[in-house]
Each structure stands twice: as structure tokens, then as C-alpha cells.
Amino acid sequence: MSADLPRLAAERDALREQLRSLAAANDELLHAVSHDLRAPLRHVVSYAGLLAEVLAEVQAPCASVSEAQGFAATLQRSARHMGQMLDGLLAISRAGRAPLHLAAVDLQAALQAAQAQLPGAAAVRWAIQTPMPAVQADAPLLQTLLLQLLGNAVKFSQGSAQVLVQVSARRVGEQVQVQIADQGAGFDPARAASLFQLFQSLHREGEFPGVGAGLALCRRIAERHGAQIAVSSPGPGQGCTVTLHWPAAQA
């Protein structure tokens, strides 16, 4: 059995390299598609706006004109939504293409910086453990991930009497386990796996802002660090907990 270990290790390393190559190719494809679609989308948005202006100037409005105005408004909304989807694709491709500069990062300071960038953070009740262990990360990418996760916790707590977000971290061996919990909308735990799929949402359209790209972005950032991310909930209306298993800072 011991004689097979070098061969198994080589096969494992080759498989990891293939997966990295596939991920890089996917990031390139996402970048190309999202970038190249922007020009025609800008034309759609512009001409939908011009059409709405022309229809508004019709001197003798009638049922057909009102119907056409509704069509133009729908076209504008859909085009803006598509623009948000392209923004999500670009963010994921950038996260996959950006050079990775790993260093020890003060997790507590990174969380505070993310809070400072979060709109409406002052209205949130924060329960953040101190002190926190340091992690090994690319600081800008970690900042992007934390901002997204804290933003989600606040967003999906809309409508609660008080928005409470709890953050804890502890070192477990060579990793740091980070948990971000809220008391918001939650979701059906049977559908948890679909949360990380691009443009997937477990809530009704229009109930919360966004296009369902945030957790896909977080997963891509975690993958690049050799980290793991999971999301759990007891059920709808019972809050949500995001758990990260992240490499601890190297001594």
C-alpha cells in the first residue's frame, strides 16, 4: 500500500491542476460573455427609454398606446435586471482572474472594514466576538466576501423588528471556523444546495433586491483560498447561518 502513495499523490495533484485549469477557463468565459453583452444591452436600455418618451408625447392616447407604454416599461425593467446579472458575472470572473496575494489578515479588522462599507450598518445590532484568530487570505478578496455575507445577513433580515447579526470565529486545527448568523427570512433547508448556483433565489421575485449572484461569488472566492463555505437554516422565517472553514494564518 505504501508503494502506491506517491502515485496516488501525483494523481491527486494532477486532478487539482485540471480543476484549476477548468476554473480559470470558466472565469475567462464569464468575463468574455459578460463584457461583450454590455454594448448591445446599452442599446436596448437607450432605445427602450426613447420609445417610452415618444409614446408619452402621443397627442391622442388610446388603449393601444397605453399597452405599448406598458411594453416599454417592461423592456426597461428587464434590461436593467439583465445589466445586474452581467455585473454579477463580471464580479465572479474578476474574483477568479485576480492575482492571489496571500498573507496573514486580521479577521476582526477585516469585518470592521466591511461593516464601514455597508449601507445601513448603523441601524443593525451587531454581536461580534472579540478577539478573533487571523486567517491566511488575499485581503481584497476576503473583504469582498465579508461585505457580501454581511450585506446578505442585513438584506434578508428586512422586516424584522430588530436586525441582529452575530459573528463568531474560532481556530480548529489549521483552519478558522467563521459563522455569520442572522434572524431573518431563512429558507427551506431541503433547497440549501441550490443557493450557490448562479442566479438562484429561494424567495419570491422582487421580495428582496439582487439577482442571486452573491453566494456564487463567495463560493468562487472561497475556492481560490482552499476554503469551504456552507449555508444552513432551520426553515423559512427562522434565520440563516453561513459557516466558513478558512485556512488559519501561517505562523
Rank of each mutant, 00 (worst) to 15 (best):
Q112K: 12
L102P: 01
Q129L: 04
A123T: 14
A98W: 07
A121S: 15
A121N: 10
Q115D: 02
Q112D: 10
V135T: 04
H101W: 10
L100M: 09
A114K: 09
G120Y: 05
G88T: 05
A137I: 02
V124L: 10
A114Q: 03
P131H: 01
A114M: 03
I128D: 00
P99L: 12
W126L: 12
D106L: 00
T130M: 11
W126C: 15
T130G: 13
A95K: 09
A116E: 15
V135P: 01
M132V: 09
W126S: 01
Q117H: 12
V105L: 08
G88Y: 11
A123C: 01
P131N: 05
A137Q: 00
P131Q: 03
A95F: 13
A103P: 00
L90T: 06
G96K: 03
R97K: 15
G96N: 13
A116L: 14
A122Y: 01
G88M: 14
V105R: 05
G96P: 04
A95W: 10
Q108L: 12
T130L: 09
A91F: 12
I92Y: 07
P119N: 06
A113R: 11
L102K: 02
L100E: 05
A121M: 13
P133E: 03
A113M: 05
L111M: 11
I92A: 09
A137Y: 01
Q108F: 04
V124F: 01
A116G: 07
Q108R: 12
L118R: 08
V105N: 09
A109P: 04
G96A: 11
L89V: 13
A103D: 07
A104C: 08
S93H: 04
R97M: 15
Q136L: 13
D106E: 14
A103H: 13
A116K: 13
D106I: 01
A109Y: 11
L107H: 08
P119L: 05
A95I: 08
P119T: 06
P131K: 12
Q115S: 06
L111Y: 00
Q112P: 00
G88V: 14
I128T: 06
A134S: 11
A95P: 06
A103Q: 12
V135G: 00
L102V: 10
I92V: 10
A103K: 09
P99D: 06
G120P: 05
L118Y: 03
L89D: 03
A91T: 11
G96M: 15
L90C: 12
L90S: 15
I128K: 13
A113Q: 12
W126N: 02
Q108H: 15
Q108N: 10
